[in-house]
């Protein structure tokens, strides 16, 4: 059993002056350096001995990483350095992306969210990441600066496994962009932890839907499941059921399909058996809650 360090082992803090400088340093020290944002995952994992970087490269404050900007024609850009509490308190986010606010407020504790960032949560790619489901359902796209300059990484193809993503050494996610959500849309994040608040998710269910006359039910759903597989899971079978019908039996069938789509494990937070049942129940609740909002 690996004992955690009392504090952080010896390492150095690096504060580059530009994205180029940061990217070069990270590429040159691949495997022994990490970009550093809120630090709330990083410090924990280094203390645990899971990560052993020699250098933490603070990219907060570099070009494009600060601030929240909302363009009514395009959408929302959240800098990588913006802590979750700032996101949740932002009036444009509250007005146009309430699902993001809800997801942020389920993360750990208030004081942790003063540091933790959405981009950090996404890039660390924990299957339990609370904001990842919302980011996926809202069609999030990461803006990444790497050795070859800027590129975009849509979240649909970003996650490979726990902690494994499309990011490579020298890459710095500078911000996350969300297009304008469809008109008449609504979302819900339901999280089950051992405590009522503050725990990691035993399971988490994000449901998002908008009115769409082109499908039989009139509603198009996006659903994301947390903590029930190596990556966040999109239960497309459930989404398709709801495109056909949203009556009670369809919602139940979608919940069942979500349950069938996930591959949880037993761990200290819960067993696979319980997790599957909870995915079913929370999917039912989340879908119903979204429909109730849309029917208002």
């Amino acid at each position: 059993m690996r004992n955690a360090h009392p504090g952080l082992p010896e390492l150095d803090y690096v504060k580059p002056g530009s994205l180029e400088e940061a990217s070069k340093f990270l590429a040159a020290h691949a495997g022994e350096s990490r970009p550093f944002l809120g630090g709330t995952d990083c410090i924990v994992r280094i203390r645990d001995g899971a990560w052993k970087p020699k250098y933490l490269v603070d990219v907060k404050g570099l070009e494009g990483t600060t601030g929240i900007s909302f363009d009514p024609a395009k959408g929302l850009t959240i800098g990588a350095a913006v802590p979750m509490n700032k996101v949740a308190a932002h009036p444009d986010v509250q007005k146009h992306y309430p699902l993001l606010v809800e997801a942020c407020n389920w993360v750990a504790s208030y004081q942790l969210r003063s540091r933790a960032t959405i981009v950090g949560n996404v890039c660390n790619a924990s299957p339990a990441g609370d904001t990842i489901g919302a980011a996926i359902c809202l069609d999030g796209v990461l803006n990444v600066f790497g050795p070859d300059g800027y590129r975009k990484e849509p979240l649909t193809t970003f996650f490979f496994g726990p902690g494994k993503t499309a990011l490579k050494p020298g890459d710095i996610a500078t911000s996350i962009f969300f297009p304008l959500p469809p008109k008449e849309s609504a979302g819900k994040y339901l999280k089950l932890g051992r405590n009522r608040l503050g725990d990691l998710a035993i399971v988490g269910v994000t449901a998002f839907a908008y009115k769409d006359a082109s499908v039989a039910s009139g509603y198009r759903f996006r659903i994301a499941l947390a903590s029930v597989g190596p990556t966040p899971i999109r239960p497309t079978a459930a989404e398709e059921i709801l495109a056909k019908s949203i009556d009670e039996s369809a919602v139940e069938a979608a919940a069942q399909a979500a349950m069938d789509s996930c591959t949880p494990i037993d761990d200290t937070r819960g067993t696979a058996r319980y997790r599957k049942l909870m995915i079913r129940n929370l999917t039912r609740q989340a879908v119903s809650a979204v429909l109730a909002q849309l029917k208002k």
């Binding site: 955690a4 803090y13 809120g38 630090g39 933490l56 750990a108 504790s109 004081q111 942790l112 540091r115």
Partner: peptide, 24 residues
């Protein structure tokens, strides 16, 4: 706890509460 879980190290930094064990 030195891992951002217990809150005993909470201080106010730039106007907001943070776990001081989670800040370099």
């Amino acid at each position: 706890c030195a891992s951002g879980e217990c809150g005993a190290c909470t201080v106010i930094m730039n106007g907001d509460a943070v776990n001081s064990c989670m800040v370099l």
